[in-house]
Design a protein around this nucleic acid. Structure first.
Length: 995
RNA sequence: GCCCGGGUGGCGGAAUGGCAGACGCUCAGGACUUAAAAUCCUGUGACCGUUUUCGGUCGUGCGGGUUCGACUCCCGCCCCGGGCACCA
């Protein structure tokens, strides 16, 4: 047999799987289901890097293994293909995004197929395919058609709300009369209930990207994509009412088999706070605040509103609530910087300053600023008249956008009070009566608070809530940090909204028959210079006539020709949906990807997602912890409420694969005259700047004299590792910096899987991806590591297939006769063969058990080392048993499927072969997993003192005798009497002696 | 600042109360070869004694505790990575 040559066997088997539909999944089956899902990729122009196949290989192993165990396995792949990078590349190269996207998908698909994943490619989805986004749009219309019933804590059809309003069972909040409202008024009112609605609000506008972004997409005041500055601007935008589901999304986490840290990230993002809503009186009206510390109400000495608070929205004219003159005795510091002539002017000026400050500036500079608005409120518990300020440390979007300030017990209020010389009144003391440093934020005991004096903080909170409710001054309340999801983008390459705007300013969803609403073909899809979306450049698409069908309060629109009876002019929504839209439900489409009647057949959904509920294993990066994973859960809850899916949570078990870093990089610093400087003498605060070649250059200073130093990279061959640092082989006194970096194009440390496959094959790539370490851990890439697993595969090949130098030793026993390569063995050799088969039996069963258990617990690295150990045993014997080798090959198949297929054919013969993946998983005999003899470790006082050879099944009583009979152990005991002994069956014996 | 996760040989890692360092990489020595590569075999935590067998001591970030026995469990600290961060 020829030597192991992956290049010759891998494409052959990939073609075989494709031609034979080996991995096609049945949509329903009498077999149990197993749904194993990857986070589908965004097909970028750069192609795959070795980080992508990490999770994909893990799921592929599980998929192949579960299939072998008799499950009907769903293991699909698709493309999250709408989004900014393709659009920006399209603009740069003046090609259409659909062309760019198609090309990228082809590249990605070819790369994935070259790795030999067992995807059912007939189920692939592409979010930019109209037959896919048709259903994204359909789900959006479902969100429009759903309102959240707080009392029942679930989403319900809007028609049920209309019915309740019609019959008077439910009254609109603001006291208006539903029955006498016009259709336009009704539609406006209903928009306040729908899960998808529009609102004019300050949003995250990113000028560089030419679009608004969701809170989740803004990190430290910069866009997650590209890191461009983001500013706050008021714009009319589509929002999804995810806040309505905050409690459900939080509570739902408990039942999920996700890592604790991931659940925590989501629960922090949702951010539940329990506290109270309290009503303060301002003139004739009331001002509500939310506080988590109702027990400190007696210590409230002023109030603060967000600059965007409705009370200060009008700052001029007779109807403004802000007075035209400062009250007497208003301190100068309260009037703004510089002091303004009137509260109206001061408030206006402050609002402008706030609006012009970017999110980043606001976060970086936490010094307290603000102005007095010229009004006072009355503290409902003690009648105190307290001044009201506006300040940007109070956020408009959280709670009621207003706070009561208790400077004695809140860090921020304390700072503010110091600056504006406001009174600080302690109402909590330490439980041990010790003097407390101001502010005292920790729990203690209430004081100077007539209603609750002496109560510990916990009880004081509860008592205060109870009293507020009794006196009708407020009530307990739970608020959430999460905001509604900003759902529109001013870009071209996304799903168009299935929405039209009518002349009366209301919006109407398109009828289902109108879907998909195709993205218009446009040659100019570049962002406009204004904040208008690119779709505004196509008036022919924008301006339409529609006929309204259904009820007047909640109609649907059908596009008709101008002049059709009943036609009214309308304008299409010009924004598009964010990239997250398509990924919110793709796992449902895989189940029934070609259905034209519905997004997914109910019976098929029920088979795959009801018992056990949800996707059985979902693997992807932790970067989606609060974006995709939260959005998707939200949509799924809505689909569940509306009866379209059979369980509330989509992803029962989720694993985050760890990042793969680039190979170790060594950095040497040298001074201007080129002398190497040891890292000990280099200031650790390096700065970086891009060099002429576009790569990042690091610059630092010498500690001793501050001279500028320049970094250069050193080849791995030139250094010797010593812990965290490494030294130059040529000059060991010079230490260089050694570290691993995230793979990135700009660092030039990206490893392309194509090259790994070319040099070592897909099986070696797969194996190394898994062998590096635990799936969830961050791990550095290593080409020599790839060579290591490649050598292992080569040895497996040599043992089973044989090579020109080492003919195969595989022996087949048939009808009591042994054959090697078709030739019958003589009696002596046959006897050896049977003996050798017997000696491999126990290790084989132990390996089967280990690999099986390790796949179950996703510990692939240890499964591989178990197979390596087994393979290491195969070098010595003269013969190898065909049946045993088949079992081994079966174990190897999920990890190295191409090699396994090829060896399976060699072992079974051309005539009877089929895919090894169709063969059942080998079983193991627990009795054969126990070694027949053990070298039992013997300890004295817990320290290893020697070993005793012992056959399996020796009686416990004999073990001690055997140990005491051993010369070496006796000498170690040195005659000391044994006080006690501990024997753990088959594992070890501990002798306890005095001293 | 708050909340998670983690610190084990030269490196990636294994062992979740029972022989610390499986497996792989690296390195060294040997075999094959005219030679090199590839491949195969042997060794590879540190230190000490014997210098061959072999024997001993120390050793899982640091300090303490529980236990016959601790990488593993408990308490305190240090360092690294991640997340959140004016959320009332």
């Amino acid at each position: 047999m020829a030597a192991y040559n992956p290049a010759s066997i891998e494409p052959k088997w990939q073609k075989y799987w494709h031609d034979n539909n080996t991995f096609a999944t049945e949509s329903t089956s009498s077999r149990p289901k197993y749904y194993v899902l990857d986070m589908f990729p965004y097909p970028s122009g750069e192609g795959l890097h070795v980080g992508h196949p990490e999770g994909y290989t893990a799921t592929d192993i599980v998929a192949r293994y579960k299939g072998a165990c008799g499950f009907n396995v769903m293991h699909p792949m698709g493309w999250d293909a709408f989004g900014l990078p393709a659009e920006q590349y399209a603009i740069k190269t003046d090609t259409h995004p659909s062309v760019v996207t198609r090309k990228n998908i082809e590249r990605f698909k070819a790369q994935l197929q070259a790795i030999g994943f067992s995807y059912d490619w007939q189920r692939q989805v592409d979010t930019t395919d109209p037959q896919y986004y048709r259903w994204t749009q359909w789900i959006f219309t479902l969100l429009c058609d759903t309102w959240f019933d707080d009392a029942q804590s679930r989403g319900r059809p809007i028609n049920e709300l209309i019915e309740e309003l019609d019959t008077g069972k439910r009254k609109p909040a603001n006291g208006v009369q539903w029955q006498t409202m016009s259709d336009t008024e009704k539609r406006r009112l209903l928009e306040g209930y729908r899960l998808a609605y529009q609102i004019e609000a300050p949003v995250n506008w990113c000028p560089a990207l030419g679009t608004v972004l969701a809170n989740e997409e803004v990190i430290d005041g910069r866009s997650e994509v590209g890191g461009f500055p983001v500013e706050r601007r008021p714009m009319r935008q589509w929002m999804l009412r995810i806040t309505a589901y905050a409690r459900r999304l939080l509570d739902g986490l408990d039942a999920l088999e996700w890592s604790e840290s991931l659940k925590l990230m989501q629960s922090n993002w949702i951010g539940q706070s329990r506290g109270a809503k309290v009503r303060f009186t301002v003139g004739n009206s009331t001002l509500e605040v939310f506080t988590t510390r109702p027990d400190t109400l007696f210590g409230a000495t002023y109030m603060v509103l967000a600059p965007e608070h409705p009370l200060v929205s009008m700052t001029a004219g007779p109807h403004s609530s802000v007075p035209e003159t400062w009250p007497a005795d208003t301190p100068m510091v309260w009037r703004g910087e510089p002091p303004a002539a009137s509260p109206q002017i001061a408030v206006q000026a402050y609002q402008q300053t706030t609006a012009s400050r970017s999110e980043r500036q606001r976060q970086e500079d936490t010094r307290k600023t603000g102005v007095f608005i010229g009004l006072h409120a009355v503290n409902p518990v003690n009648g105190d008249r307290i001044p009201i300020f506006i300040s940007d440390y109070v956020l408009a979007g959280y709670g009621t956008g207003a706070i009561m300030a208790v400077p004695a017990h809140d860090e921020r209020d304390f700072e503010f009070a110091k600056k504006f010389q406001l009174p600080i009144r302690p109402v909590v003391r330490r439980a041990d009566h010790a003097e407390a440093e101001m502010p005292l934020v920790d729990p203690g005991v209430a004081c100077h608070s007539p209603w609750i004096d002496g109560l510990p903080t916990d009880e004081a909170k509860a008592r205060m809530c109870q009293l507020l409710e009794e006196k009708q001054l407020g009530e307990s309340q739970t608020t959430y940090r999460i905001r509604d999801w900003l759902f529109s983008r001013q870009r071209y390459w996304g799903e168009p909204f299935p929405i039209v705007h009518l002349a009366d300013g209301t919006t109407v969803a398109l009828a289902e028959s109108e879907l998909p609403l195709l993205l218009p073909e446009m040659s100019d899809f570049k962002p406009t210079q204004t904040m208008e979306p690119p779709l505004s450049k196509s008036p022919a698409w924008r301006d339409v006539y529609v006929r309204l069908i259904g009820t007047g309060a909640s109609p649907r629109a059908v596009v008709v020709a101008a002049g059709t009876p009943g036609a009214v002019a309308a304008r299409r929504e010009l924004n598009t949906m964010p990239q997250w839209a398509g990924s919110c439900w793709y796992y449902l489409r895989y189940l029934d990807p070609h259905n034209t009647e519905t997004f997914c057949d109910k019976a098929i959904e029920k088979y795959w997602l009801s018992s056990p509920a949800g996707v059985d294993l979902y693997v992807g990066g932790a970067e989606h912890a609060v974006l995709h994973l939260l959005y998707s859960r939200f949509w799924h809850h809505v689909l569940f409420d509306r009866g379209y899916v059979s369980s509330p949570e989509p992803f029962r078990r989720l694993i985050n694969q760890g990042l793969i870093l680039g190979e170790a990089e060594y950095t040497l610093f040298s001074d201007a005259s080129g002398n190497s400087v040891s890292i000990d003498d280099v200031d650790p605060n390096w700065t970086s700047q891009p060099g002429a070649d576009g790569k990042i250059r690091f610059i630092s200073r010498r500690r001793s004299d501050g001279a500028e130093l320049y970094a250069s990279s050193v080849d791995a061959d030139a250094v010797e590792r010593r812990g965290d640092v490494a030294v130059l082989k040529s000059a060991p006194e010079i230490r260089v910096d050694a570290r691993y970096f995230k793979m990135s194009k700009s660092r030039g440390n990206v490893v392309n899987p194509d090259e790994v496959i070319r040099d070592y094959g897909a099986d070696a790539l797969r194996l190394f991806e898994m062998f590096m370490g635990p799936l969830e851990q961050v791990k550095p890439w290593s080409m020599t590591g790839v060579e290591g697993v490649y050598r292992f595969l080569g040895r497996v090949w040599r043992h089973i297939a044989g090579t020109p130098d080492f003919p195969s030793r595989v022996v087949v026993e048939r009808d009591g006769r042994c054959y090697r390569q078709g030739l019958e063995l003589n009696n002596a050799d046959a006897l050896v063969a049977r003996e050798e088969r017997q000696s491999i039996l126990r290790p084989l069963h132990r390996t089967i058990r280990k690999v099986t258990q390790d796949i179950e617990r996703l510990s692939f690295n240890t499964a591989i080392s178990a197979m390596m150990e087994f393979n290491n045993l195969l070098g010595k014997p003269k013969t190898l048993d065909c049946g045993q080798m088949l079992s081994f090959v079966r174990l190897l198949e999920p990890f190295a499927p191409h090699l396994a297929e090829e060896l399976h054919v060699l072992l079974t013969g051309e005539a009877v072969h089929g895919s090894v993946s169709r063969q059942p998983w080998p079983s193991y005999d627990e009795a054969l997993c126990v070694a027949d003899a053990v070298d039992l470790p013997v300890q004295i006082n817990g320290k290893l003192a020697g070993h005793v050879m012992m056959e399996a099944g020796v009686a416990d009583a004999e073990v001690l005798e055997m140990a005491l009979a051993d010369d070496h152990i006796r000498s170690r005991l040195a005659g000391r009497a044994i006080k006690k002994h501990v024997y753990v069956k088959g594992r070890m014996l501990n002798l306890v002696v005095p001293g």
